[in-house]
Design a protein around this nucleic acid. Sequence first.
DNA 1: CGTGTAAGGAATTCTGACACG
DNA 2: CGTGTAAGGAATTCTGACACG
Lengths: 101, 101
Amino acid sequence: MDYKSKKVIGMGVVTDLTGLSERQVRYYEEKGLVLPERTKGGSRKYSFHDVERLIEVATKLEDGWRIQDIKERERRLSTKQRDDMIRGQLNSAFRTFPTKK
Amino acid sequence: MDYKSKKVIGMGVVTDLTGLSERQVRYYEEKGLVLPERTKGGSRKYSFHDVERLIEVATKLEDGWRIQDIKERERRLSTKQRDDMIRGQLNSAFRTFPTKK
DNA sequence: CGTGTAAGGAATTCTGACACG
DNA sequence: CGTGTAAGGAATTCTGACACG
């Protein structure tokens, strides 16, 4: 695992880095948009990747998105990505599988 | 600044990552071998680079080095590096400056 | 010299709840 | 729905000191 994915950042640094409040950060977690790890004592630990994710979420909210919208869109995207993967696999298996157009 | 150099890691994670005690980590700082940043409240914050540095220091201590030895050696190394830099600059200024051999 | 430990305090983070719009 | 806030507690980290070898 690389530096970007290692969950080592505490709440204080996260609020500094993102400009968000603790409340916001915890709420986005409650809604399943970020998944920090926990220390034995229960403190949240985030990765740099999580920090970027939080900023992305906050930006979309400012743009008028709702949290449900964000989750919805991403669910669909990952579904499409799965479809593309399967299509790719079929493609190499049978060189005749029809792709779009 | 990249992820590796950003000082965002608290003491707890540092001891987890290095296997060192808080005492050791603070002592190496006292001796000038690592230079964490501080939060407003006074908590130390380390980078991934610092973490690797701490492991390196601890390893050398296990190998019988003394902290002063470690600092001494590095002082000399950086002096040599400075010499090399200056030699390089002179080299490009006067293509005749004698390099070793 | 390098490290352990007990002591007491200050800073940090957590949860659950009430509030607002 | 997304966020602020006051409340109380638990976990975290800090400093200075004494101890050992």
